[in-house]
Each structure stands twice: as C-alpha cells, then as structure tokens.
Amino acid sequence: MDIVEITGLTHRYPDGHPSLAGIDLTIARGSFVILAGANGAGKSTLLKHLNGLLLPDKGEVRIGGVPVRKDPLHARRTVGMVFQDADSQIVGETVWDDAAFGPENLNWTAERIQDSVEAALATVGLGDLRDRSPHLLSGGEKRRLAIAGVLAMRPDVIVLDEPFANLDYEGVRQVLTHIVTLHADGVTIIVCVHDLEKVLAHAQRLIILQQGRIAADGAPEEVVRKAEAFGVRMPAACRLGGKVESWLR
C-alpha cells in the first residue's frame, strides 16, 4: 500500500519561478527511497509538501490516503521531517525537552510523552545525555537529537533533508546506523542527498529530480548509471563497474 501519493504537483516560488512542475509519485509503506538532484532541483520543496509546510499550487498530495490540504496536522503526525540544519530545529533547552516538544504539541498525556521520549532517546543513543544542553552536543549528536525529536512523535514516514551534511565519518556512520535500524523497524524512509555514496547501498529506490521534474526513477543500481546526466555525482565504485558498499561495513 502506498503511504505517499502525489498527483500533478505543481508549485511556484513567490517570484513566480516554477519549483515543481507536474510531479506524479507514489511511495510504498515501509520503503527506503533516495531523492537526489542538483541544487535548486526542487528536492527540499517536494519534502515540505509531504509535511504540509507547503501546499500545492496545483495537484494533490495524499498521506496515508488523506489529502494534506484537508488535514495538514495528520500529515505532520504521519510524516516526521528532519531538516538539514539541526541547530535551527532544536527548540528545547535540554536534550529531553527538545525531544518532548513534538509529543507535547500533540497534546499527549505526561506518561505517554515520558515513554515516547525515553524510547526515542534510547533509539538514537542519547539516553545518557537527557539533561545536557543541545548547544554542547557534537554535530552528529545534534543530528541524532533532531531524529529523536521526530521519532518521539511516532511517525510512519521519516523524511531527512541532507542528513549527512557537515558530519565526519563517525557522525555519518552513527546517523546512517539509526536510519537503517528505523527502516528495519518498518518506518518508511525518504532521504534527500547530493552525495549518493553514503546511503545508496541501503536504498530500494532512487529518484532524481531535475528542474522540478522527475528525471529518473527506479532501482538504485539502474538509475545511478544515469545520475551524472542530471547533475548528481556517480559513486566511484559505480564508475569502476562495481557495487557501492555500505558505509556501515
């Protein structure tokens, strides 16, 4: 069953410049999808439509069968969004407060919030840092906190915008481990990246956007061969005729 259904999605920037032009797309529940494309291809704009932060000028976005325009809150409960800049996503003064922000917005009971936040922090390995100020966390820890903040809301889909940006090797491995674990637990994962190498080995589908349109869509091993034609760098292993290895090995 498809959890994301997009038909004829068109969106323009406030200056009239088109950002998305007639996107038709469905994403199956429980899948792991990479959304790639050059700068300005429309990736982030598309992701914001999934969460109801932007509404289509034309067309329709349905999350779990419910149109986002009709019930944006349902979309935000179902699709958790992790932004590229983890710093500007942090709201709480401690790690625990930040993870609890989303569940508090959902008006959950104190016990449910407690359980959900504890579980989310444990999942991303931040349970021991619950009273730490988020400002004092490393880049990788901040990114994991951003994931925990979304995870605590128990979404069915997690959308990550450039989750590996500005992270060192260890940071990339930590974040990737959590993404892969979440996918194994049945969460639908949509990752938006420039650099395919870090995540390609784990994905089931690769979608490339170019100038607001879907330029290529299919199995990663097939689509990656056309990537450079659309401004996305092909991983070195693919150039040499091999397969991309997981960064977790």
């Binding site: 932060l53 935000r76 922000f101 989303g102 979304v150």
Partner: peptide, 9 residues
C-alpha cells in the same frame, strides 16, 4: 518552520 513541522499549536 521546524516548530510547525512538529505540530506546534
């Protein structure tokens, strides 16, 4: 934007 994405109301 991040607050809105996390259902702030």
């Amino acid at each position: 934007l991040a607050m809105e994405a996390r259902c702030y109301g």
